Simulated scan of single mutants.
Amino acid sequence: MARYTGVYGFPESADGARRLAEALNVPCHIAELHRFPDGESLVRLPESVERAVVYRSLDRPNDKLVELTLAASVLRRQGATELCLVAPYMAYMRQDAVFRPGEPVSQTVVGDWLGRLFDRFVCVEPHLHRTHTLDEVFVGRPSVCLSGAGAIAERLRRDGVAPDTVIVGPDEEAAPLVEAVAGPLGLAALVGRKERRGDRDVTVTLPADAPLAGRPVAIVDDVISSGETIFSCARAARAAGASSLRVFGVHALFDAAVAARFQSEGLGMPLSCDGVPHPSNALPLARLIADALAAPC
């Protein structure tokens, strides 16, 4: 008997929910959402299943968090005994400490909130810094942190990646992703150093001896939003002599203006995993997530 007996999705992520349900070979149900003129949400769900996966990526999260709370209450009331939240992109993970007086530790607040609603969590490349595992976020709840590296590596393999390609990450936080992409392909890897002065004021420097001259470079990062980190990293790679550049991101959060800038910078459209619905989606995650759900906690 399958551990989970149904997948629930939401309108903006219905395709991802259906792909996951197909991989699990269980029914898929899509919630109905109504937004009142004052901004409140009404969530309607079809009949409940006993052990449910709720699928929703938490990019642009504020309304989604309230709607997840409402959905979980409906499923519990209708008899669900186990709820697993699959959030390919998990929000509010970056604020894991008080950096200035008067700030919240948002990671702890949201972790406690969701931990009261769901029994298990599956996320992909959560934006963790000083927190080492999701178990520290969702205390007392089994949590699985998946990597998008396999999807990126598989695409590079399928495209016939050149053996002298270098996998480059913009900073030390990208090192695990970079190594997980490069290692199975037998490729060289390096990471730069990022100086961030503001949300859109970023400089990436690469090692002075970076062996990029005449070699193809694939830049990989977990999140692409403003694009400034990637643009700076690309400029540094070109200055070091890279013969060509490709860009891969696990989570694509950038808008049309940033997409146009990727084109004008000669980088083409980045390729992203399909956890966050986006025009750049090209790297499937459903099988990876389904395998994680099938594994014992």
Results as ranks from 00 to 15, higher is better:
Asp274Lys: 01
Glu265Val: 05
Gly140Asn: 03
Lys194Ser: 08
Arg51Ala: 13
Glu228Asn: 13
Gly111Ile: 04
Arg215Leu: 09
Leu128Val: 00
Val181Cys: 09
Asp274Ala: 06
Gln263Gly: 14
Arg196Val: 08
Ala52Thr: 01
Ala282Gln: 13
Gly160Thr: 04
Arg158Val: 15
Arg261Asn: 04
Arg94Val: 09
Ala153Pro: 04
Tyr8Arg: 00
Asp201Trp: 10
Gly169Met: 05
Arg116Tyr: 15
Leu20Ala: 07
Leu24His: 01
Gly115Thr: 12
Ala240Glu: 10
Gly16Phe: 11
Ala162Arg: 13
Gly198Ser: 09
Leu20Asn: 09
Pro11Ile: 03
Ile152His: 02
Gly140Glu: 08
Ile219Arg: 11
Leu134Val: 08
Cys123Leu: 14
Glu12Thr: 15
Ala240Gln: 11
Phe231Tyr: 09
Gly186Met: 13
Pro284Ser: 08
Pro284Gln: 05
Gly79Arg: 09
Pro207Ser: 07
Val220Gln: 04
Glu172Pro: 07
Pro88Ala: 10
Phe121Glu: 02
Leu271Cys: 13
Arg261Lys: 13
Ala259Pro: 07
Phe138Glu: 01
Val137Cys: 00
Asn281Glu: 13
Ala182Glu: 10
Leu271Phe: 11
Gly227Ile: 01
Ala87Thr: 04
Thr69Asn: 11
Glu125Met: 07
Thr205Phe: 10
Glu50Thr: 12
Val168Gly: 00
Phe36Met: 08
